[in-house]
């Protein structure tokens, strides 16, 4: 009887498919004989496993089967009936390979044919083994994956840099919006926000604070006699003194022409607040030179303390600090007055 034509073609194909042709189609193929020894392998795989004699070596010498079936020894029986496999390299356990397996000959009489490829560790493997484009079959998507990984990294870098630039811009816009341009201390807006925050914090068990209203005395005459440039210089000097006399955690703000406010976090000791006020006044009273000229100013201060209130609000505290300031002025300027605890508690003005 004649052999059917299709079968003859298969035989011809099988005879023609030597290791070289297989290697071209599948650079990572592995042919194991029925005893689990390497009969042939593709050029990329031999680059990865080499150097050294590979043909005839046992499978287990170079590979470890991941999730092998329990109780089965020998690669042939462990792979029996499987189509997808996962391996790792003995020499590089972190690099995993995956692939498919097929019987060669009836009942795997001529062994097993494995076609392997790198999974997610492709990029590491390429670096580790110095692989090139020719180590991958053109039908493999490895090149696209590498390309995509690199393109993605480039785009991400660009996005990260953009985010940093935007964040910097946001911060500087924010700080510009909350800074008094003449003196560099906080402005009214920043002060209002900080005061609101402190008051809200009190409700949640936050620390107490004091609000001090500082108003310069005789400032107008400096402006009138020495000019606005001298006045500006003087205001910058006042801001510097206030910052030097307070702590980093406190806030100094310029809220009007010659008006400053201080938010003193954690301050509740009346005596210490009073001496702080007097120290500030003493420093502001030091002679101020502008060019050849010298002038003197002073300051009046009014202070309100958050512990004096059951439920402090910004309006009431500001009004009480103002009233204390007014008292300082009325008593002859150059003084520091504290809003009285009882007056505050009763909601009265000092």
């Amino acid at each position: 009887m004649t052999v059917p034509c299709a079968c003859q073609n298969w035989l011809r194909l099988a005879r023609g498919l030597g290791p070289d042709a297989l290697g071209q189609l599948m650079p990572m193929f592995l042919w194991l004989d029925p005893q689990g020894r390497i009969s042939a392998l593709g050029p990329a795989l031999s680059k990865i496993l080499g150097p050294g004699r590979l043909l005839g070596a046992r499978f287990e010498q170079h590979f470890r089967l991941r999730c092998a079936r329990a109780g089965r020894s020998g690669v042939a029986s462990a792979l029996d009936g499987r189509r997808r496999i996962s391996l790792s390299l003995r020499a590089r356990p972190e690099i995993t390979l995956r692939g498919s397996v097929a019987d060669v000959g009836m009942g795997a009489s001529d062994g097993l044919l494995l076609n392997l490829s790198f999974g997610i560790h492709l990029a590491e493997a390429v670096r580790e083994f110095g692989l090139t484009e020719t180590d991958f079959a053109p039908s493999d998507l490895a090149m696209e994956l590498l390309y995509l990984q690199e393109a993605k990294a480039t785009v991400l870098n660009e996005l990260r840099a953009l985010t940093v630039r935007l964040e910097d811009a946001r911060r500087s816009a924010l700080s510009e919006a909350q800074t008094d341009p003449l003196t560099g201390v906080a402005n009214r807006r920043a002060f209002d926000l900080a005061l609101e925050r402190l008051i809200r914090g009190l409700g949640r068990g936050g620390q107490s604070f004091a609000l001090a209203h500082v108003d310069l005395d005789y400032f107008k005459s400096v402006n009138d006699t020495l000019g606005h440039a001298a006045g500006d210089q003087l205001l910058r000097n006042v801001a510097r003194v206030l910052e030097e006399e307070t702590r980093r955690s406190d806030l100094v703000a310029r809220v009007g022409g010659d008006e400053f406010v201080l938010l003193l976090r954690g301050a509740s000791d009346r005596d210490r607040l009073h001496s702080l006020g007097e120290r500030i006044i003493a420093r502001l009273e030091e002679p101020f030179s502008y060019g050849e000229q010298t002038c003197r100013i002073s300051a009046s201060i009014g202070v309100a303390l958050s512990p004096d209130y059951d439920e402090p609000t910004a309006e009431v505290m500001l009004a009480d600090a103002d009233a204390a300031l007014y008292l300082s002025k009325r008593l002859g300027k150059g003084r520091c007055s504290l809003a009285s605890a009882s007056a505050a508690a009763e909601g009265m003005r000092a």
């Binding site: 990029a123 390429v126 670096r127 110095g130 090139t132 484009e133 590498l146 690199e150 990294a153 870098n157």
Partner: peptide, 10 residues
């Protein structure tokens, strides 16, 4: 040209 990205990025 090497397939692997130079260490430390491009």
């Amino acid at each position: 040209f090497e397939l692997a990205r130079p260490v430390g990025g491009v």
